[in-house]
């Protein structure tokens, strides 16, 4: 299991997480290659179905990286995203899948470190859970 590289889809809000990504790049820190990113104009745009589709395609985990609760420029984007992540957790649980496979993180535009740490944290968590589907 040690060489298991969880495949992860990360939804990034273009306003904060993407700027954090640019800063991380400046710091010569980059995301591990097992993370594929999807950039959205606001995390509030991410629907429940968008969060489920990657699992349908066989990924091991999904996360949303958006703004801090009080700094979403569209007011409630990240709290909407958090509610949808909660809904997906319930759906996964109801079909016997670990709800920890999906999560939501609050980033700040200036925090390049946190941006990469989030990815590593998720990778570690999924590595411990193991693959989503039987081989």
């Amino acid at each position: 299991m040690t060489d298991f590289k969880p495949q992860i889809i990360a939804f990034y809000c273009s306003n904060c997480a993407s700027s954090a990504a640019t800063i991380a790049e400046g710091m010569k820190k980059s995301l591990p290659e097992n993370i594929r990113t999807v950039h959205v104009p606001c995390s509030g745009r991410i629907e429940t179905l968008h969060l489920l589709k990657p699992f349908e395609e066989g990924v091991d985990g999904v996360y949303v990286a958006g703004c801090q609760e009080d700094s979403c420029q569209y007011i409630s984007g990240i709290s909407k995203a958090a509610r949808r992540v909660e809904q997906v957790k319930k759906i996964l649980e109801s079909i016997g899948i670990e709800p920890e496979r999906i999560d939501v993180f609050n980033l700040s535009a200036g925090k390049g470190d946190a941006f990469v740490d989030t990815a590593l944290e998720m990778t570690e968590k999924l590595r411990a859970l193991g693959p989503m589907n039987p081989a």
Binding site: L49, L52, K53, F55, E56, G58, I91, L92, S94, I95, G96, I97, M132, N133, P134
Partner: peptide, 11 residues
């Protein structure tokens, strides 16, 4: 989608 995910998970 949930039914497909469940099917896949259970082989």
């Amino acid at each position: 989608s949930a039914l497909r995910i469940s099917g896949k998970r259970n082989g």
